[in-house]
Nucleic acid binder design. Structure first.
Lengths: 332, 332
DNA sequence: TTGTACGCGTTATCAT
DNA sequence: ATGATAACGCGTACAA
């Protein structure tokens, strides 16, 4: 890698002037600037970001803690995050993270990122504390859980409102008893969705019985197994809502295997609306999570937090709630 | 962030000794080491990776150039790459990359990564040259195209062999005329798959007619549109193989809309075997690409290239070919 | 066994 | 308008 010194020598100026030019300072004489830029071009010089970071204390990198990239929903949000980050001149790196790996988080992050995005995560208490007093801006995409309220600012959709519309839709289709499939982690974003579903049910005067809440483990295969089991044991609900689309697809899978017709025998709906959901048999009704908006907004907000941090401002945005779109297909 | 100096002061030693301890040098007296480690613990000291990189010229970061993270296949490979990279102590960052953004690639990478993984990509000529003489190890997951042979080492599955088995399978099911849907980019990995399909057809003495090769654009929706159009115009082939599963799913989608039964009216098979393919109607026959193996192997090989580079060795592994598994489902 | 001193490539301050 | 020069935090050769 060609360094600033070589450029300075070539252009016949001091190293400082090279930096002035690179950083677009106005105080450089036009002719000097031309000479420098020419040397830069000839030598193919690019400022070393590592050295720059050492001095500026900013890496222009953003860390994303992903829950499970095998879920197309998360991959989709990540995709849009990256696109927006690039526009802001940031690079994204990511780690698959689990709470029990709590201790290593600090090592991973130490000085590597200017900010942190949580994608489908709640953070361990120690890590949260560490980040907080490290002054590292943290933003969560998807609200972790009710008890974590105000932990970190977050972006999410209005699940309660969305689920109310879904419940009304299901009732109009004649389904009065409705179950919900969650992932067994109350303090995860999907646990939060369950709490919203409960609230929506309450507001719609729908009784949600505890026996109708299933733990589908968060993934397709585990959800299929869980519903298969439930079908064998006999279920009372006429419709089931998956906490994510993978689990809803798993429910379809179980119905297919068990010979239960959808939506006749059991209506199935999901949450997120991934591409797969338009291709299942039957296609899945779902609440669409606007991945593009959420991803872009997350990066925008985090960046403003980062810059606020730089200016010493602690006035961080606290949350943003997007609207869920009910996408009705043949599974209901 | 607490710096080395503070630790040194606290432990009553020099900064050098702190470094010796952090890097596990043997020459430190046991008692001193204890004192230092205690100070490290008390202060929560972590070496600043930026400063370290400036000195060592290594970032312990690997860049991944992704084609389209909206394809669950790529996200899946990336997932496994990250897992393996973490085991090696590397962090992965990624960029969605297109050839026409050629000029910015150098900026993105300059000094940020120790190595580069291409996921579903061919590189522009200038970028390739730049990386080559920057001495940055590059490894491609999925072979870009025949004409790029020996450009960079790569990992891929044995498409020709896989397609031969698929062709035999389709013939056994009674389909004698077979079409192929590609993405319109001959020098992309999917273009390479097409060339393998041609070769497989030749070896199996199957005639692949040019009119039976469709450009499905690489994605589900575009593939659906393309096949819909073809169906309207009248097709002669009895089976179609998608260059990836998204396009194969798009073909199913088109058949469903057009009222063509699968596999009766048209048999459909894919390449990759993503999760979605097990849930489509009917479920898709596909060639399974072992994402876990490929991702892990890619990181292993790249790391050995990085270390080889460090030792001045230029003996890089040139390629690795994995086996494709034919997964037969109801679409054929 | 430990300490001193230098260099990595920047940015930024202060002279000139 | 430009040039010296001091940090930034670390690794390490060399001196002690």
């Amino acid at each position: 890698m060609v360094s600033r010194k070589e450029v300075a020598d070539r252009a016949g100026v001091s190293e400082a002037v090279v930096s002035y030019v690179m950083n677009n300072r106005k105080l450089v004489k036009e002719e000097t600037r031309r000479k420098v830029l020419e040397a830069v071009r000839e030598l193919g010089y690019r400022p070393n970001p590592t050295a720059r970071s050492l001095k500026t204390k900013r890496t222009r990198q953003i860390a994303v803690l992903v829950h499970f990239l095998g879920n197309p929903f998360e991959a989709g949000v990540l995709l849009h995050m990256e696109s927006r980050a690039k526009a802001h001149g940031y690079t994204l790196f990511f780690h698959t993270y689990r709470k029990d790996g709590d201790d290593v988080l600090e090592d991973l992050l130490a000085g590597r990122a200017d900010g942190l995005l949580l994608l489908g995560h709640s953070l361990g208490a120690e890590s949260a504390a560490y980040l907080r007093d490290a002054g590292l801006p943290v933003l969560s995409v998807m609200r972790p859980a009710a008890r974590d309220e105000n932990e970190f600012p977050y972006i999410d959709i209005d699940w309660t409102d969305g689920y109310r519309r879904l419940i009304r839709h299901l009732r109009e289709a004649g389904h009065e008893r409705i179950g919900y499939m969650t992932n067994g982690h109350p303090d995860s974003p999907i646990g939060y969705r369950l709490s919203c579903f409960r609230e929506a049910a309450r507001l719609e005067a729908l009784e949600l019985r505890e026996e109708d809440v299933l733990d589908g483990g968060g993934r397709l295969e585990s959800a299929s197994r869980r519903l298969t089991e439930a079908l064998r044991g006999g279920i009372r609900f006429e419709a089931v809502v998956g906490g994510n689309d993978l689990m809803a697809a798993g429910c379809l899978d179980a119905c297919r295997r068990a010979g239960v017709s959808v939506p006749g025998g059991l209506a199935v709906a999901g949450s997120e609306d991934i591409l797969m959901s338009s291709q299942t048999a039957p296609p899945l009704t779902s609440l669409r999570y606007p991945r593009d908006e959420a991803g872009a907004l997350a990066v925008d907000l985090l960046q403003s937090m980062i810059e606020g941090e730089a200016r010493g401002s602690r006035l961080h945005p606290s949350m943003a709630v997007l609207e869920a779109e009910l996408v009705v297909r043949e599974s209901t």
